[in-house]
Every structure is written in structure tokens, then in C-alpha cells.
Design a protein around this nucleic acid. Structure first.
Lengths: 227, 227
DNA sequence: CAAATTATAATTGTATGCAATTCGACTCGA
DNA sequence: TCGAGTCGAATTGCATACAATTATAATTTG
């Protein structure tokens, strides 16, 4: 792994946890001094971040961390509703027994956490949920579909959507995971795609409700909140 | 426009017309000497080409021009069939009168060229067709959807698909353009999406037939043919 | 003679210095 | 007082030099 790769991950992480707030500029020289590297690998990392949509390059003026408007969030959901059911559909006709077992194991652990009501259970569920989707993606066997989704589903929005769920919605989400397993096991692509679609539309509804809420209270939604 | 931007376009053009064949390596130093630039802007252009999927970065060994297998072509069609109907659907509820008129003008010119049977009429139609799709994309008003499609619909495959059409298929394609205009004018998203889907599935069928043909004759399909 | 090994050359990865460009503040004039 | 123009500081864009890594090929050894 090259220095530029490390810098890429470091900067992305800092954008994620709000250390670099939306709208702020990421300076090559500053990071270079801090990490004791020259500007060259920093530049390369920033260019990758630009093409991955994390920052915006203003010619001769720097790399600006992107701001997310509600409209952006909606646009991403619209694309996910198109693409992710296709992931499920493909997986239904390709998934292997052991992959199915792994997914089931993840689903069980999420359900357990859901019942526990532990302190940071939501965060743990979110991690497992990411793993679940990643393994499903792998089973679908379409590198381009994977790349597209990785490009648009940037964690700051998707991950946090879990926190807006009511208890019922969370239970419903767990139910979706289970039903998807049955659809996959049956090799029924239509069924699997439909379940995934419901899964996403439910997430979108929760997100929309949250957006309406912050609209009233006047809390910002554009900027990535700090950790 | 920076030097890196120019280099990006130059290299991409050379990949397109076969000057840099699939599987070959693009050397930073060689291009730098030829264009009388240092390796720095060349590197930057190559990194962009990597993230746009034109070349593959082999660590410490260089940038290799990607090879397209039949499976890749099918994967791209699968994604287009998902995404482009959504472009039509969005455009149906957003398009303005003058945009519709421009699309119609393009459709008419394509139909004329189709009747002419001129020598390089196919090439001209392909150019107009690209314009048609670009304007439709603009009318859809979704930058992310646009970016996704630009990423996957790399011209070497899509543009050439026109050349595999029979006369009937070409006429049918023109008919799709017309019908799409009616659907857009009616503001009927379902209709527009359905027409676009047919449009793409027809293109896919022609591509598949062509692939089967070269399979028999043993002609290569993986490498980008020379101009 | 074959296989492992080492040396070499070629290529990318990184550091540093300078040039070009842009944005902001300050000054000058109306 | 307001506006236009100009100067300067800051930042990116590019060139060059050097270091690190890897593939290749010659070489040596069993």
C-alpha cells in the first residue's frame, strides 16, 4: 500500500467523522506537514477523493469538502432503489450455500442486538448491516454494480439512517433480512428484488421523516455532523 | 484547462481509436517526452483514467489498457437497462418545451440520414444519437445518474452497436426516438421509461447477435479494434 | 540440464523547488 | 462614501531529481 493510499483513507475518515466539515477546504501543504509527507501523495489522494465524490476541486483554489443537501440524499435513495434490488436479483441465482449461511448468521446476530436494547447496539447493528450488504453484493458477482453502489452510497448518509428508525421500523428491517434469505434460498430473483426494494423504501421513509423534523427545528442537515 | 486535463483527453482518445490497444501499457515517461511535459500531469491523467475505468493500475508496473470481454459488455447493458429508463422517466416530468423541440429536431435529422443510405451515414447517426441521449440526460436533471451512466457507458462499446443493426432494427430505433418524444410530451414517465427499455433491449439483442457471429468466425471482441 | 538466485534495468512512488493563477485587501480616484 | 484598479499573500500546477520496488535475464549451482 502506497503513501497516497493511506492518505486517501485518512482524509476520508476525517470527512466522515466531521473533522473536516462540509464546505471547508483541505489544504495539501497542511496535511503534508502533519503527516510528514510531501504534497505529492496528498495531491494524489485528493484527486481520488474528488473522483469518488467526497470533495470538489476548485481550480487553483483547493479541494472543498462536499455539502449534502436533502435533495442529494433523495437522489441517492432513488438510485439505490434502482440498483440494490438488482443486487438481490442477481444474488438469488448465484449465491452458494455457505454464503447463505453467513448471511443468516449475520441476520441472527442483528436480531439479537435488536432485542438487547444495549447502549450502542444501533452502532453494532449498523456495522453488521454493512457486512450483510457487502456479502450480498459479493454474491451478486457484478464488479460494475458494486463500484456504482460504492460510489453513491457514501456511508455518512446511509449508516446514519438506522438511528432514525422507530422500534417497529427496526424490527421490520430485521424481518426484511430474514425474508431476503428465504427468497435467496428459493432462488427467486423477483422475490429477492422486491424485498430489497421494500427494505430501501422503508429506509427512505425514515430518512424523509427525519428530514421533515430537522426542517421544523431548524437543525442543519447539509453539513456532516461531528462525531 | 490544465495540462493534466488535456493529457487525459488525449490518452482516452488514443485508447478509443486503438492507438493504445487493450492490454498494452501506457508509460508515463514515454508520453511525457512525446507531449513535452513532465510525468506529473501524465500521472494525474492516468489516475483519472483508472478511476473512470479506462485503464487498470498495476502497482509499480504501470497502467494497462483494459480489455473488454463479452461478459463486460453484458454487464454494462444490464446496468443501462436499469438506469436509462429512469432517465426517461425523470425527463418526462421535467422537460421543457424547447428541450423537446431540440430532441425532435435531432430525431428528424437521424431519420433523414437513415433514409439517405449515405456512406458514413451510420457514423453521423451515432453522433446525433449521442447528442439525443445527452440532451435527454440533461432534461432528467440528476447529476448523479448522469455521472453513473457516463462512467459505465464507455463509447467504444455503445457507439459501435449501431453498426450491428439491420435496416429493420435501425428503423425501429428511430421509431423509439419518436415514441419517446410522444411519451415525454404527454408527461408519461411510465411510458417513456418503457420505450427507453425497449430501445436498450433491442440494442442488446443486436450486440448479442454480433457477439455470437464473431464467436463463430473467431474474430476478437476483447480488444478495441484499430481505427 | 534445470532450478534457484542474484544483479541489473526499467518503471513507478515520493520529495522539493519554482511558476502560474486566484482571491482578498488596500489604495486611489471620482 | 462607493467603486474600480492594483498589489500581495496564499494556493495549486508543473518540472526535475531521487528513492523504492519490481520484472527480467543472466548466472551459478545442484
Amino acid at each position: 500500500m502506497t503513501a497516497a493510499d493511506r492518505v486517501y483513507q485518512i482524509i476520508r475518515q476525517r470527512i466522515l467523522n466531521g473533522q473536516y466539515p462540509a464546505g471547508s477546504y483541505v489544504r495539501e501543504a497542511a496535511i503534508g506537514q502533519e503527516l510528514e509527507l510531501s504534497r505529492t501523495p496528498i495531491r494524489e489522494a485528493l484527486r481520488r477523493l474528488v473522483s469518488d465524490g467526497w470533495v470538489e476541486a476548485i481550480p487553483h483554489h483547493g479541494a472543498q469538502v462536499v455539502s449534502w443537501t436533502q435533495r442529494d440524499v433523495e437522489e441517492v435513495f432513488e438510485l439505490r432503489v434502482l440498483l440494490e434490488p438488482q443486487v438481490a436479483r442477481r444474488a438469488a441465482s448465484r449465491i452458494e450455500r455457505n454464503q447463505l449461511d453467513q448471511l443468516e448468521s449475520l441476520a441472527v446476530r442483528m436480531e439479537d442486538l435488536c432485542r438487547d436494547e444495549g447502549e450502542n447496539a444501533l452502532e453494532e447493528i449498523a456495522v453488521l448491516n454493512d457486512d450483510y450488504h457487502a456479502r450480498l453484493m459479493a454474491a451478486a458477482g457484478s464488479p460494475r454494480l458494486q463500484r456504482l453502489l460504492e460510489t453513491i452510497v457514501q456511508v455518512p448518509v446511509s449508516r446514519r439512517s438506522f438511528h432514525h428508525y422507530t422500534r417497529d421500523e427496526l424490527a421490520g428491517s430485521m424481518q426484511h433480512h430474514r425474508e431476503l434469505l428465504r427468497a435467496l434460498d428459493a432462488g427467486d430473483g423477483d422475490w429477492a428484488a422486491s424485498v430489497m426494494r421494500s427494505h430501501l423504501l422503508a429506509a427512505r421513509a425514515a430518512q424523509l421523516r427525519f428530514a421533515a423534523c430537522v426542517e421544523e427545528t431548524g437543525a442543519g442537515v447539509a453539513s456532516t455532523p461531528r462525531a
